[in-house]
Design a protein around this nucleic acid. Sequence first.
DNA 1: GTCAAAACTAGAACAGGGTTCTAGTATAGT
DNA 2: ACTATACTAGAACCCTGTTCTAGTTTTGAC
Lengths: 204, 204
Amino acid sequence: MSPAAPPAGPEARTPSQQARRQRILDASLTLLRERDHDRIQMKDVAEQAGVALGTVYRYFSSKEHLFAEVLVAWAATLGTNISRHPLRGTTDAERLTEVLHRSVRAFQRQPSLARLVATLETSSDPLAAEIFDRLARITDAVYVGALHDVDRDTAQRIVAVVDAVLASGLRTWVAGRVPIGRVYDDLTDAIALLLGARAQLARS
Amino acid sequence: MSPAAPPAGPEARTPSQQARRQRILDASLTLLRERDHDRIQMKDVAEQAGVALGTVYRYFSSKEHLFAEVLVAWAATLGTNISRHPLRGTTDAERLTEVLHRSVRAFQRQPSLARLVATLETSSDPLAAEIFDRLARITDAVYVGALHDVDRDTAQRIVAVVDAVLASGLRTWVAGRVPIGRVYDDLTDAIALLLGARAQLARS
DNA sequence: GTCAAAACTAGAACAGGGTTCTAGTATAGT
DNA sequence: ACTATACTAGAACCCTGTTCTAGTTTTGAC
């Protein structure tokens, strides 16, 4: 049988375990500031967290799960980042563009996180699926909120498209196939296409 | 120093080398019909191709390169597939939707290829970059060709967006996060958004 | 037809890194 | 105090891509 029931979720038993778990996540995030997750070894994480390798595995059943949880933790930051300041734009297009550019900027500051997202995106682990759901809920709410002049359903559909453009842009950027400026531009462009004709229509 | 100059590109020295190289690619493609590239070992490829492991490495410097070339070979098929039959639609939206649905269908028949694309998409290898360029050139030409009523530049921009939606859809599908039908629907939807208002505008 | 150079083969050996296991020590709840 | 559980350091395991070895075939030049 298994070694014992490990503390699965964030609801660790004792405070010290809670702290230990957090220390491992923090350590991972720290290491991600200097290199990609595929250049980070589990023993590096253990060492950085001041914990034995076995302990890392007690809290996270695999490297993939560990980094998925790291992403969850970071997602909260992202949500705060893009919704902290009020949007300055006066049109839907301006506001949506602004908020998406903020997302790009957040990933631009943490390229390893962008690469992590790109990698986990192709994982079929159920935990990964749940995490993307959560990430999408956080960001989509903000994106949809930027659209004042269209009904909710249309807003959702527009956001879905724009999200795809964002994801594609980030992926080609982290793969080194396009400069980051291109990602900003493509988003601006896509939004113009999606809202431009619509605005003209409304105006007439 | 290196063992010797291996035949790099498809321009192998002798016909038998040309054939051997092709046999390795065919073997890979055959194996991809039953499992994913990450479940295929280099020795499996060698065996299936009736060739020694070292020979595979003589023709392809790494597993990643091998499968990148497999993708190149398959891309030709894809191009043929989606452009073989004439498009039946009478509007830009109908034609573009149809041709994109063909792309989805092609990947639907070869899920491993879709997963291969998703994986290589995050690779920063220059060869991968070149391959995606080539793939994009093949498909984008067809997509743009489906748009009769907009100028070339606008068509390009629309196609770029739709491409992103396709890529996102395929990725979430291969990750098992959405059913394939959803991918078709999202494309239909995105195209309607991009061309719907525009058509209305033209009509008035 | 002969011969050296290059390619091919079967298979062993190597390497990196995720994961698991071991033996001993520390902690905590009863 | 006692026992179950957690933690530690580190070894060990394992899978798989990649490289190497020794011997055999092919190939191309003369």
